Computed example of a mutant assay.
Amino acid sequence: MITSSANGKVKQVMNLIKKAKARNDSGLFVAEGLRIFKEIPPELIDSVFVSESFLKEAEQRRLVSGLKHEVLTDEVFSAMSDTRSPQGILALVKQRSYTTEDLIRAPGPAFLLILETIQDPGNLGTIIRAGEGAGITGVLMNSTTADIYNPKVIRSTMGSVFRVPFAYTSDLTASILQLKERGIQLYAAHLDGRNNYEKEDYTVDTGFLIGNEANGLSEDIAKLADAYIKIPMMGRVESLNAAVAASVLMFETARQRREQSLLKK
């Protein structure tokens, strides 16, 4: 049993929680909590840490019985944890690697989100979780978007991070041009939008450009869209949170594709 927060393995976990460089160098990230632990594909689990109290429940003992795991005192686990109320289990998980090609390889029309400098981890996690619910085929992000392996992002995805393909690009413009060459229609929510968002056809290969929370899309990236669309507002609201706007567009796409599928039957 690990009884000190000075233990090397505990220090490794704490470093992975705090530093993106440590995550990048090791190819590992931290997934903490009972629900998300159950979502981890077994082949991606590198190591498991549990608290003394966690093992008092028979069902929880069974959950880790076939896995090599480290047991920590409750105090040490709490010191290591990134949450206010630790549930007593976390895993170090192997990172996955995707290419832009992986994002458009799914059967059926492509359905992508292209994110420019989304900085809030909660927003990024929410976008990925909502994206899985809407059926997106992938997420493309520029290098200044938040680290998807940040523990706050991982928690916000509620497991979707293990199922939604994603890729970072150091040259967002070049990657977007690559998508356009493949015939993917790109839309940007914009004040100069030609149509309300529900007037466009998203049943074909489609991608949505979503910009930074404070500044929106940069002018250069926005110009790459095939069309500007707008989400009409009532009251004094001028714009929506990036995750909310992305969700509106994604679920309209999902609705259109469901209707098209029903018409084909």
Rank of each mutant, 00 (worst) to 15 (best):
L240V: 11
D25V: 10
I154N: 01
I148S: 01
T99I: 03
K223A: 15
F77T: 00
A167P: 04
H69F: 13
G88R: 06
V139S: 00
S239W: 09
G66H: 12
S156F: 03
S97I: 14
R35A: 15
D46V: 09
F162G: 12
V248W: 11
A222G: 05
S239K: 11
S160Q: 01
I184S: 14
A174E: 15
V10S: 00
Q87F: 00
M141Y: 01
T253L: 09
I104M: 04
F251W: 07
L179M: 15
Q178C: 06
L90H: 11
T137R: 05
M80V: 07
V13N: 04
Y149D: 08
L63F: 04
E238V: 03
A174C: 05
P109T: 02
A225E: 06
I2T: 03
L34Y: 01
A214W: 03
Y202N: 00
K223Y: 10
G138I: 02
I45R: 13
A31V: 09
F208P: 08
K9P: 05
V48P: 13
Q185G: 03
P232Q: 05
T206W: 11
P42T: 07
A246F: 00
K94W: 14
G193K: 12
S51Q: 11
R182F: 07
Y149T: 15
E43S: 15
F37W: 09
Q119N: 06
S81K: 01
G66T: 06
K56M: 09
Q260V: 03
L209S: 13
S4R: 03
L191P: 14
P109R: 11
S85K: 15
V71P: 00
V139R: 01
G131N: 02
L240E: 11
G133R: 04
T206K: 09
R84E: 05
K9L: 15
R61P: 07
N241V: 05
G216S: 12
F54L: 12
L113I: 13
A146S: 11
L67Q: 08
L124C: 08
P165S: 12
P42M: 11
I45T: 13
V30L: 08
V139K: 03
G211T: 06
N241K: 10
V153N: 00
F111W: 07
Y202K: 09
L191T: 12
N195H: 15
V204C: 14
T253H: 10
E213Y: 13
T203I: 07
L112T: 03
G131V: 01
Q12W: 10
Q95T: 15
K265P: 02
A242R: 14
S247V: 06
P232F: 06
K94V: 02
